[in-house]
Design a protein around this nucleic acid. Structure first.
Lengths: 143, 143
DNA sequence: TATTGTTATACTCTATAACTATA
DNA sequence: TATAGTTATAGAGTATAACAATA
């Protein structure tokens, strides 16, 4: 049984360690689908909603606009996303998933969810739902 | 009200974003005490228990042994830790906090806890305790 | 002139390998 | 020869700044 709450490690330390473990667990799943971490993040953002500019996409995922260019190049090369100049303002690139991209994203996400399920499997139902509820509330990127 | 659980973002994404936000919030606190993130991590580990070798300390905090040397140099320089060769095996360095180091660590930790309290303040008591309980259970570094 | 996207450069962090000293 | 600690080197990832195209 864990000790009193005041004896716990710092919140930041626990959350950072858990984040690292989750990312480590995700890596082989992504590799199996031949997608990079940034690639998956971009696919996820575009699965939520198409974007009108690369800068908006970068902002949405908390990245620098220069950091996603190589990722977009590769996703476009593999026909997972469309990236066409807006006829109304030819500086901007309209971004959206292709059918292939949508399917790939769904497949990767399903595998990742399955891994998460295994991690959460041992929790009591009430604990599990409380944990996810609090996480969604504290998540700075959570809608 | 949040949607159904299957609509949530990936667990890894939520936890990683939260970790980043927590670390960002910690930075000014550490700066106010003139301690680096690695410095605070080392102080925390040695506050838990003195270590017999630098390699053991590195393992305990999940770092490479070469990565903590500069940190140990600085902490020793500022008389926050003691680092003396073991008479029985002069290759190894016995590591422990000084009184000053222990006080500094306690002060920083108190400030960090206060910040965490502000973050958790809005949660229902049951949600809060369930969240921390699950976090401690899933934390790979949690005793 | 301001903005979108791109490229080039520099910087930080980390991991790897080589070295010293002790055993 | 093996291990603890240290230093030096190289690599990955990131941020900053300069640039070209369009408005």
């Amino acid at each position: 049984m864990p000790g009193p709450e005041s004896d716990r490690p710092d919140l930041a330390a626990m959350v950072a360690r858990l984040a690292r473990a989750l990312v480590t667990a995700e890596r082989p799943v992504l590799a199996a689908h031949d997608v990079s971490m940034w690639g998956y993040i971009v696919l996820s953002a575009l699965a939520d909603e198409p974007m009108r500019t690369q800068a908006a996409l970068a902002r949405a995922i908390g990245a620098d606009k220069t950091r996603i260019i190589a990722t977009l190049d590769e996703l476009q090369e593999r026909a997972l996303i469309e990236r066409e100049p807006d006829p109304d303002d030819r500086r901007v690139r309209l971004l959206r998933l292709t059918g292939t991209g949508r399917h790939l994203h769904a497949a990767v996400r399903a595998d990742i969810r399955a891994g998460e399920e295994r991690l959460l499997a041992g929790l009591a139902g009430a604990d599990r739902s409380a944990f996810l509820r609090v996480l969604r509330r504290l998540d700075p990127g959570g809608g």
